[in-house]
Design a protein around this nucleic acid. Structure first.
Length: 591
RNA sequence: GCGCCUUUAACUCAGCUGGAUAGAGUAACUGCCUUCUAAGCAGUAAGCCAUUGGUUCGAGUCCAAUAAGGCGCGCCA
């Protein structure tokens, strides 16, 4: 796929190297090894399209003033047949280079040729990445942090795909261990409450409505005087709903069983329902996973036990107070930690180690990327220490830490959904704000910054809302093209290089930014940061609106100019669509 | 106590691998639609880039210390 920015940069670098070579051959400059120099896009447009610090960087080695070097270079460069028409020397010795119009025309042509693939690159070709994100506990509904994780993880996955990686999205299902036991216990308690006299009264009062029953039993805080709950269980309404539904289907038979059997039966009933629910809710958020990897599999096939055995075999464990410890300090972690408790049950990290061995060894992904809440940052060095002890190159595991989300409404922290009045989770959030807004907003800030989510702004249909600003730009372009077609003014028959493209500053600015798209995507993928895509889209939209204001397409001075601007519009719309496609946000043709 | 993150305009944030006068949006005020979507554009205002030192041709950007805020350091996950 075409990257005109890169093409121009490579050409410029070659021109400079050739000029240097020629000057050295002529003896005009000393034959010294020169330090690396940079070619970059200056912030100030009057400084040209590209600038190089080559003269300043080489000053020391050549024992010459930067400006003198620059002057020699400018004289030695042959611009014929290239994308560049001239160079200027500025400031302390910067060299500023100016592009010819053909470069702008070729950029527009590249977008129209590549269409939906414009911006893709192949840096990751032949390599496999596994992106694990959300992995919410299946014992309850997803919270707002999961919504951010979902948008972020999905965006990172898309960026990797756009840069050539074979990418799989994965959800790690914690369907084993302590929290499942706690889940069963919670369900059992609620179930027994429903079977009690008071519970039966509530059931009768609310007929077969599980939600209404849950509301009544839940009371103020899930721990009412009539239906008290201990400290170490899940209190949520969803637990009561499960218990009630089970009761509707199977009656009170479980009340007569012993506690363990009842907990297991209820967990076996409710857990699959929750997992289906997670899948459904994420799908409605436009997140579709390739794999749902179950923790229980790692227990069932012996992987978990094998981790402890293998670390022991290698001499990296010891026993203390009846527990098995891993010598993590030896592998760079802050302190040793327990692998197997005195009661014989492995700690949570052992299945995690087994899981990552599965990712990196069994399935042999080149990269495993985990999107985690920042509160897990202490856990990362421990996991890496264990992987290192098992001979895995820990650079293959990249962790993207994500800071907390704070929801705001009317400038105040918001806890409850406006519409349903329930706690704001992923599902209730989408009741309150449009899907596109959620996906856009959660990708506006980089992962590692605290995020204040303004709920009022997200629903606002105005210029203040960045999602609408971007979508409006696209709809506006579509409207222009529609009008041209209706009036028979839409023409795309002339080769783009023959059109007058890049006549005014607003056109140039817009095309320059369009040309930067492929590099921006590659850079965003490299640092796992989809927020660069939202920023790019906002900037592109802004440049289009400015172009729109300055350059009429329909009423262009000449038919050639109209055709040129039509092509620019099409290229801008295409680029905007591609950026939004990465984030899975719609680009409506009308608003 | 140890470790990680954050600190840029009144508010929310950009500032890519150090580069030429530090940028947006919001809020305030002023212009621009008989002409392709005014959900837009243009203009006016605001900043010891937390503090102090260091590295160099050059620091918001790199290093060190300090301060304030957030988080983590379990035989919880």
């Amino acid at each position: 796929m075409t990257n005109m920015m890169e093409t121009a940069q490579a050409q410029l670098r070659e021109l400079l190297m050739n000029a240097l070579g020629a000057l050295t051959a002529e003896g005009k400059i000393a034959a010294e090894p020169l330090p690396a120099f940079k070619i970059e896009v200056p912030a100030d447009k009057s400084h040209g399209d590209f600038a190089s610090n080559i003269a300043m960087a080489s000053a020391k080695a050549l024992h010459m003033a930067p400006r003198a070097i620059a002057e020699l270079l400018v004289g030695a460069i042959g611009f014929e047949g290239t994308y560049f028409e001239k160079a200027e020397i500025a400031g302390p010795g910067f060299m500023n280079f100016f592009l010819r119009k053909t470069w702008f025309a070729d950029t527009v042509q590249a977008v129209l040729t590549d269409t939906d693939n414009y911006g893709k690159s192949e840096g990751g070709k032949g390599k496999k990445a596994l992106v694990e994100f959300v992995s919410a506990n299946p014992t309850g509904p997803m919270h707002v942090g999961n919504a951010r994780g979902a948008a972020l993880g999905d965006g990172i996955s898309a960026l990797l795909e756009w840069t050539g990686w074979h990418t799989e999205r994965e959800f790690y299902v914690n369907d084993a261990g302590n929290q499942v036991a706690k889940f069963g216990k919670s369900l059992s308690l609620r179930y027994l409450q429903l079977c009690s006299e008071k519970g039966q009264a509530v059931m009768k009062a609310h007929a077969n409505d599980a939600d209404a029953i849950a509301e009544a039993i839940y009371g103020e805080d899930g721990n009412s005087a009539d239906f008290p709950m201990p400290d170490d269980v899940y209190l949520g309404r969803d637990i009561i709903v499960h218990a009630a539904n089970y009761y509707f289907q199977n009656g009170d038979a479980l009340a007569k069983l012993d506690e363990d059997a009842r907990q297991k039966a209820l967990a076996d009933y409710a857990l699959p329902l929750n997992i289906e629910g997670l899948e459904r809710d994420l799908k409605s958020y436009r997140v579709v996973y390739d794999n749902w990897f179950r923790e229980s599999k790692l227990h069932a096939d012996g992987s978990v036990d094998r981790i402890i055995d293998e670390l022991t075999r290698r001499g990296f464990t010891y026993e203390q107070e009846g527990a098995v410890w891993f010598k993590a300090e030896q592998f760079g972690a802050d302190k040793d930690f327990v692998l197997r408790r005195a009661n014989g049950i492995p700690t949570y990290i052992v299945p995690d180690i087994a899981y990552h061995m599965d990712k990196l060894v069994t399935r042999n992904f080149d990269k495993a990327i985990n999107v985690l809440g920042a509160d897990h940052h202490g856990y990362v060095p421990r996991l890496k220490a264990a992987l290192k002890a098992l001979d895995v190159d820990t650079d293959r595991l990249d962790v993207v830490l994500m800071q907390m989300v704070m929801l705001f409404r009317n400038g105040q922290p918001a806890k409850l959904s406006k519409r349903s009045g329930k706690a704001i989770g992923l599902v209730t959030l989408l009741e309150d704000i449009p899907l596109d807004a959620a996906r856009f907003f959660f990708n506006m800030r980089e992962a590692n910054s605290h995020f204040e989510f303004d709920l009022d702004l997200a629903v606002e249909k105005s210029s203040q809302n960045p999602v609408y600003y971007v979508q409006y730009a696209h709809a506006r372009i579509c409207s222009i093209l529609r009008t041209l077609k209706e009036e028979g003014l839409y023409v795309d028959s002339t080769p783009i290089r023959e059109l007058p493209i890049g006549e005014v500053p607003q056109e140039i600015e817009l095309i320059r930014h369009i040309a930067a798209f492929p590099a921006e995507i590659a850079a965003a993928a490299k640092v796992y940061d989809p927020s660069r895509v939202t920023k790019y889209a906002m900037e592109l939209s802004s440049l289009f609106h400015k172009f729109y204001d300055a350059c009429s397409v329909k009423n262009a001075e000449t038919p050639e100019l109209r055709e040129a601007r039509t092509a620019i519009c099409r290229a801008a719309a295409q680029t905007l669509r591609n950026a939004m496609a990465i984030l899975k946000i719609d680009c409506p043709e009308k608003m």
